[in-house]
Design a binder for these strands. Sequence first.
RNA 1: GGGCGAAUAGCUCAGCUGGUUCAGAGCGCCUGCCUUACACGCAGGAUGUCGGGGGUUCGAAUCCCUCUUCGCCCACCA
Length: 895
Amino acid sequence: MSEPLAPQYNPSTIESELYRWWTERGLFSPESHAPGSGEPYVIQMPPPNVTAVLHMGHGLNNTVQDVLIRFERMRGRRALWVPGTDHAGIATQNVVERLLAEQGLTRFDLGRDSFVERVWAHVRETGAVILEQLKAIGSSADWSRTYFTLDEGLSQAVRETFVQLYEKGLVYRGHYIINWCPRCLTALSNEEVDKEEVDGKIWHLRYPLADGSGHLTIATTRPETMLGDTAVAVHPADERYRHLVGRELLLPVVGRRIPVVPDAAVDPDFGSGAVKVTPAHDPLDFEIGQRHGLPTIDVMTPEARISLVAPERFQGLDRYEARRQVLTELEHAGLVERVEEHRHAVGHCYRCATVIEPRLSDQWFVRMEPLARPALAAYREGTLRFVPERRGDDYTSWLEGIRDWCISRQLWWGHRIPVWYCDADGCGMTTVSRTDLTVCPGCGGPARQDDDVLDTWFSSWLVPFSSLGWPKQTRDLTTYYPGHTLVSSPDILFFWVARMIMSGLHFMGKVPYTRIYLHGVVRDTQHRKMSKSLGNGIDPLEVVERYGADALRYSLISGMSVGTDVILDPRDLESTFAPARNFANKLWNAGRFILSNLEGPTRPLAGTHAAEVRREELTLADRWIIARCDATVVEATEAYERFRLNEAAAAVYRFIWSDLADWYIEQVKPRLYGDQQGGDVARAVVVQTFDVALRLLHPVMPFITEALWRRFPGRPETASISVAPWPRHDSRAQDPEALRDFGLVQELIGAIRGIRAEYGVQPGQVVRAVVSAGERFTEAALEQERATIIRLAKLSAVSFAPNHERVGGHAVLSDRTSVFVPLGEAIDIGRECSRLGTEAERLLRLVESQEKKLGNEQFVSRAPAEVVDREREKLTTWKEQRDVLVKKRELLGCG
RNA sequence: GGGCGAAUAGCUCAGCUGGUUCAGAGCGCCUGCCUUACACGCAGGAUGUCGGGGGUUCGAAUCCCUCUUCGCCCACCA
């Protein structure tokens, strides 16, 4: 700890060492940092896929969570961040299938058991790499509680849930049209289908009447499904077709006779007003079929090829080949009336982007309406709140229109459905069981388990309690359920967030979180979502390597305001991440400077606040920085509390860079060097304000703040900033007078610097300055910071006197204090006249518009008195500032 | 088809309850500095019809309407 610090901050070694130290000390477990004290504060990490590789989306999501958990941990809560990984049924199965494909194998070559074993082997072998990556960005999750959704305990929870829901009639098996991915060969829920607008065509086709007396024209976007048509439907009130209802058509290509049925679901204004009915391949057609007792003819295989029930010449054709073939035949028969361009939404598999095929099959469903009702109520009563609030509307509308959840998947990787069938003649019993069965409880014959597995989300919707031990009544469960804040991206609002609310209410009787914070999405400068396929991603680990985890985190947090997306430029990492790295370096050097100047005596402070030093011993600058520091505590704390993390980060940035480094440290230097008078107080103030700044920044930049904080003298070897108390606002630090007066000192120095720059005064050359009284800036105030003014403005002397000298640079401060820098022959009178003239004109414009405002009868009578007063004051100030300038111009003899 | 969000400096964005941060920050740009914490720095500077139009108001970047552009979500018109 005592080796000299390098002038350039090098995060890579420091970060990994500190992370190891944190975990060795168990600082991320609530038990170790605050035994038995403080209210629990719990966040559940959205479990990443077990095979996932860290991308910026994870980076943002986990940084936000880490900021919140570190903030609450420092505030003394028993902060618990529960991490885990998701077995991710389809995604993981696809990964392993791809690996098999490289050896020319399919999962069917291996068979179910060895395939599943193979997936386990893969998952174990590659490990949860992503968890290690989350550590690299500083995530302070409690890794001792890491779960995997296929763990024994969570599997128990899944089974318990399924059985309970089944027993209440909320899980059922049904024969319906579901979304089917012909590539993944499984059913999907509605949420797992990405709708995408595509330019397609709509064909108007003639179906001849069976008796040869003409035809009926139908409109379709999917001509190939006509192979499975079993009717044509028209609206019952449609005059055009009323005479055809009940008659028969001869289905072209196939030659089947099909009826014309009346059904109110048909929109007479769309297409031709007549719709072909294919009950096995369209959800609406299925319903029409149900109502009219129509047969269902499934003309497609699971792979979306034409099945054996279709005419032989179509069998085995891919659905799009079949479309072409059908159209060719219809054209030859002269049955294509016309073709129109048609833009419509087509569903795609969210895992492989294959076009979804609506398919009739037996699946397991969860009846959602009874679960949705309490979830809606929780939101409407205000138990559950969204940040930003408008996300509550999405939540509400989804729940209001909720449809049953198809939970069975025709996959091998996942939780097997806990249902056993008996195939014995005369028994045929279906048993839903918490434990595995081998024999049928009804007849003692062999029991056969359902082949399917459950939707991945059927395990992840339980994690707020299953990760804590449920269904066992564990200590963790009673202590840490319900949690507090859920941090997520809006794209899994329905998949995961809303469902957790429902399961939490149903199984635990309480919402799992009271706050749902939905942050934005990481995009590139063209506002496209970062993705592997677009090649516009940024690898967070590359950023960590080049700029440090703190820089990554700061960049993400500062680029994010509530509810908006984060835009990062993948083509220019340097300008994207350098500002945050530069900030870290600035902080490092401020720390280095302070640490190297603590040799002399330091005023010991009993508590943690610099305001404890007696006021008489403080300089104006001391009082100013103490007040600014306290204001920053208030500002940052409120911002963190309100999830305005970017504002918290900006407030601390401003304090550290603009206040502490640019002004206070510059001001305090002479007092720190050697054994100067007041050095003890200066050291106390600089250490305390820096300490506060580090603590305020720690949630966002945990590594560098820890690295510096630990190095301060008197710090116990075991102390960590991650469990240091959060800085508290101290009203004794408030000091409006100091803020105002030191503000004028800053203004004065700035004015002199401006004059120097304007006239190209050599940096090494000292000049004189004369200050004459303004409203606030008295000789006493100047006296207090005389040395500071002289040093920072590079003066030989500053005097307080009315200035009548003619040749020099002039400026006026906001309180009408005027400043004069005599420059002898160096001054160009003409230049100074025009400079003052421009400034006077600017003020004149302000004065004029202000006079107009105050001359407005309406304004004076209707605006609040205090606003009017304030505006009057402004006018006076500007007027007088202008007068001063005009007088100076006269003095100079300007034309 | 329905709903939502965004549009402010060349770029990325703040600006919350209309008036004391009101036109801001960072990057980039220009000028000058290796001033013993930091050139990943310091000092100074230039840059805006606050997307267009209309309205409410004493007063609008801020509230309302409308249009334009971009983006997102939802939806069984085949």
